[in-house]
Nucleic acid binder design. Sequence first.
DNA 1: CGTTGGATTGATATGTTTCAAGTGGAGTGG
DNA 2: CCACTCCACTTGAAACATATCAATCCAACG
Lengths: 246, 246
Amino acid sequence: MLACKTPKLEAPELGRCFACLIRERGICGALSEQQLLKFKHIARHRTYRPGERILSSENAADFLGAINSGVVKVTKILADGRQQIVGLLFPPNCVGHTYGKTNAYFVEAATPVELCCFERGGFDRLSAEYPGLSRHLLDQTLKELESAQDWMVLLGRKTAEEKVASLLLMLATRAAPSHDCNGYKAPRVAEFELHLKRDEIADFLGLTYETVCRQIAALKKRDIVRFSGTRRFSVPDLEPLATLAG
Amino acid sequence: MLACKTPKLEAPELGRCFACLIRERGICGALSEQQLLKFKHIARHRTYRPGERILSSENAADFLGAINSGVVKVTKILADGRQQIVGLLFPPNCVGHTYGKTNAYFVEAATPVELCCFERGGFDRLSAEYPGLSRHLLDQTLKELESAQDWMVLLGRKTAEEKVASLLLMLATRAAPSHDCNGYKAPRVAEFELHLKRDEIADFLGLTYETVCRQIAALKKRDIVRFSGTRRFSVPDLEPLATLAG
DNA sequence: CGTTGGATTGATATGTTTCAAGTGGAGTGG
DNA sequence: CCACTCCACTTGAAACATATCAATCCAACG
């Protein structure tokens, strides 16, 4: 992975930033080297194990964290325990925008996760100086909003089969570009990681885990997806999957 | 309405902005009078009738519009015609962030709508000078994202009864503060406007319009809401409604 | 007074959930 | 190396909520 980082002349003080996997694509991409240096001073690296809580409504965020690696899931919960995953975040996106209090929520690591965290006060102070940064954050948030809206269509209007197909399609198509680096294209029929357990998938799709099981089983039987084990799958041909996704 | 605008000393050139209903709360709230003047030069007032298309995926937005009055709905559509309302926008929010092309969408007036529109290029050029503006837009977008996520919980996990109750509750609670002005409190048992037709409500809640009808009828029978006509309602007591909303 | 578009109500069909039982693999300890 | 346990996953049958299909109803309007 590190091997494909573009070597560039950078201030040696940048240290870890120099090797950062999301240096170009993340929020830091909006910064010059001098600016980056200032941010580095308030940055702190954190790691989380799968399932570990990153923040929640009881435990408000005092930091903004850029995801270096791993997958983060955001879950909202109703009073009686029903829950809905309202977002999956991948590198180079950010966690830590504070949410309101309409519903309780929590943010946790779905896989091993590395964050680059900025203490909120310091970040806001610095970002006021660099307009490009909040512009960048705005773009990122708009993209999140758009995915949220697409997911609303899925939740409100798609059938169970379409929901499952959509999820697999989403993972298959979005996993691809994240695995290539500087133009390297992953082979067509790659294996993709299903980062979630069956009940998490259910919470993402607004179904029960039994229904998820049955739908996955049906897709396997029709050879539209192939599973090795329970969490890795490949897609022989994207087209029929895309058709089913609606 | 105009009567409750706080009179303030402002540059006379501001003209329409002087009387703008969302001057304080909208994006212009982030601007000084001098800055506002520059924006006024590229601003254009537009009005739309109920049902009129404001923009869509075929007809990409070349402007950003702050909603002065009225309600705007954003709808996404699947290839086979199923549709889902993914957002209702009220003053002083903005329309015109371009969306991607995952799903076709359109944005239209749900009621008579007034927009204050900024041609995109000019707006971006000016906003680069005023960092407060994209910060403001970011905050607004984060709020939209949060409502979208709350709606995902509703779509994915709530029952038909809870969905309808949630919508009525949302309109009742969010309509209240928008009707008072400078601290004036609306009377406790006010009438609220249901800006949408039954089938639009259905598209908003991920139901069929028959189901919406039945659920509304059930709420009426239990005297949890009272309808006058088909589009106006009052809530004798918010508590039972809130309980049903889940 | 007929027409029209939205809203309502009823009967039936169906997809998904619920409840319940069973499988299979990974890890553990004898 | 083999039971044993645990946890995630799978599968089946029955129950249920919502969708679908089909009549009306009703108010607005020309």
